[in-house]
């Protein structure tokens, strides 16, 4: 099994056509959505399957590694 490293997604809003495909393909639990009906961009995704990036018809989703959690 591969260990997934949490990522933080970023949506390039200029190219986003609000098609909802990223949310439709997302295997996260309910609520992993931004107020603009894209995948969430304000919290890390710990699944990091990248399907949202693959489905985006205009390739406007990118990611960076999420900052490490500190307690």
């Amino acid at each position: 099994m591969t260990k997934k490293i949490p990522v933080l997604f970023s949506v390039g809003w200029n190219a986003c056509i609000n098609c909802g495909a990223c949310v439709a393909i997302c295997p996260q639990e309910a609520g992993f959505i931004s107020p603009f009906d894209t995948i969430a961009v304000d919290r890390p995704c710990d699944i990091a399957c990248m399907l949202c990036e693959a489905i985006c018809p205009v390739t406007t989703i990118t990611h960076e590694l999420a900052p490490l959690k500190t307690n």
Binding site: C19, A21, A24, I25, P27, L51, I55, P57
Partner: peptide, 12 residues
């Protein structure tokens, strides 16, 4: 409800 990536067409 999860859909497979091979079964969701990316449309424009």
């Amino acid at each position: 409800t999860h859909i497979k990536i091979t079964e969701l067409a990316s449309c424009l």
